[in-house]
Amino acid sequence: MKLIDKGAEANLYLDKDTIIKERIKKAYRVTELDETLRKSRTKREARLISFARRAGVPTPVIRDIDGNIVKMDFIKGEQVKDVLNRVLKDERKRICEEIGKHAGRLHKNNIIHGDMTTSNMILKGDRIFFIDFGLGEINDTVEAKGVDILVFKKSLRSTHYRFEKECLDAFIKGYSLEYEGYKDVLERLGSIEKRGRYFAKR
């Protein structure tokens, strides 16, 4: 078993074809809060990952859950974060449209990812896998879906700023193809942004 990554909230170990994700204790958090967060997120992640796959979004298959540890299939690919700025325009658009379709499929089934950034998507071949559902939930409200999209939009602005507009347009195209409630969500997205501190009029 080899430590392959120290993420923000978990250590990732690789054992043959299996990823072992352990949400480790955070020294900065009080014990009660720390334990609640780790347990509930591990459980949620396992549940939502299966729901998402049933909704048609590629996700790793869960092998086992035990306390703060979840074991799942290793997806041998590359983080979309590292891919997106480097590929040609057509491929970039294809990737973002595909991400939009995935988001649409999730929202159609009231699945909120909770951390929809390009760090949490893996490109393998031409398929995009969604991972890291620990902050997710089942929620049918337009508000929750709007915030979910906002997280993605902001990750474009901070990390893929040169292609923010083309990526977002492609995402929305894919999203609206898959989810017929898209209009309400995009409208809400606008009002959530305006609610923020120092929202710039662009």
Partner: peptide
């Protein structure tokens, strides 16, 4: 002493 309160994190927001 610690009492549970809503903990709201949305990605990095």
């Amino acid at each position: 002493e610690y009492l549970p309160l809503p903990y709201i994190v949305k990605g990095m927001d």
